[in-house]
Design a protein around this nucleic acid. Sequence first.
DNA 1: TCGCGCTACTGTGTATACATAGACGGAGAG
DNA 2: CTCTCCGTCTATGTATACACAGTAGCGCGA
Lengths: 231, 231
Amino acid sequence: MRASDRAYAALRDEIIDWQLTPGTVLAEVEQAARLGVSRTPLREALARLTADGLVATQAGRGLMVTDVSADSIRQLFELRRALEEQAVRLAATRRDPAVFDALALEFERASTLIGRPEDRAAYYELVARLDAAIDDSVDNGYLVSALENLRTHLVRVRRLAKDNAARLLESAVEHLTITRAIADGDVELAASATHLHLHRALQHALGAHDLTIATTAMSHHGTTTLERTAS
Amino acid sequence: MRASDRAYAALRDEIIDWQLTPGTVLAEVEQAARLGVSRTPLREALARLTADGLVATQAGRGLMVTDVSADSIRQLFELRRALEEQAVRLAATRRDPAVFDALALEFERASTLIGRPEDRAAYYELVARLDAAIDDSVDNGYLVSALENLRTHLVRVRRLAKDNAARLLESAVEHLTITRAIADGDVELAASATHLHLHRALQHALGAHDLTIATTAMSHHGTTTLERTAS
DNA sequence: TCGCGCTACTGTGTATACATAGACGGAGAG
DNA sequence: CTCTCCGTCTATGTATACACAGTAGCGCGA
């Protein structure tokens, strides 16, 4: 594997996993040394991250990890609705019914997975397989590319939101509805079910984000107070 | 301006202007020499073009200018519908009515521009200003980024389609309808008018493409015949 | 004559050296 | 004491040199 690919994957994973938090400055020599590559492949990695929107040039201060705010989540979900509604519409038209029937069966049993913390990863993997089946059915490279980039951002937001069992059980039902609609070739039902799913996911994400903001603000306040007391 | 930006702009413009035709191999040293930059900024330019989807790595043969086929145009317009319908929906919600009222007045007078070949560019510029007004109204960086990338591909297809006056007059009426719907804040009308506009634009683009394919095939046949005769 | 293998070469990927612009700090003047 | 200007220094942008892999072409053997 190329050094530039490794650097890109490493930085992207650290950003979506919140190890590199928004506002972190990514200096070329520093990151190149840390990741064990030279500046040339690292610059290529940073260029790709910039194109992805995970990193942006902040006037005069070099490249910074982009922010996640309530407003950016709103924007992200507006794009998500456009792309995913179109994707499920096309998937419902072009799908192989057997594939989505099989996935629907799995979603019916998903509540078991969600209940056991050790099987939580298996549920996320099931959702990923639904995404892959939709990508495969839409038969549209431009749309799939846009969806892949979108999902990178969504993972970052999801890591922040910390799904709870209640929300996951809800989402399993929503996914089941979407999957059945695609299997049945019901374009409008698939689109409406997706709209509903995204509406609820946005509410959940925004709620979690507000909590995080509040918590962060409080802990910052506390730190500041301690610093003042110490000085 | 940076050398990598110049190289990117030069290559992109040549690709969308069909000076670099699909299948052309872009070797690094060759292009670097031609554009008067070193390999480093040129590689950055090629990476950006690859991310844009204007260039792709063909197994073993290096980077090639991507193809434009009837199928790729179909895919492009499926993505276009998703993005533009969402964009006009959001624009109709968030617009400044005065901006779109002014644009609507200009579209009413557009038939004059289309009639005179020397003012043809002025009509395209008017459409570009409508796009810019929509971008400004949607207040969504992710969506605008996706639209900008999409438009690059659309320009390449349009250069192929060679709009005629009849189609442009039709499109002016469609644009007027969309602009008025946005000005009035009529979300569903704006979305439906956009759907209709894209449907007609696709028919036109596909028709033009088929003609080009037929012409190319004929000229290729002719060339082959000549070569055989010569040898 | 056909097939297999070897060699040379071209082109990509990476490292590094160099140029330059912009930011930060210090010193001096008002 | 503060503001401004100048110098230095750090970080980015570019060029180039080197390493290596993949390929094409040629030659040799069957």
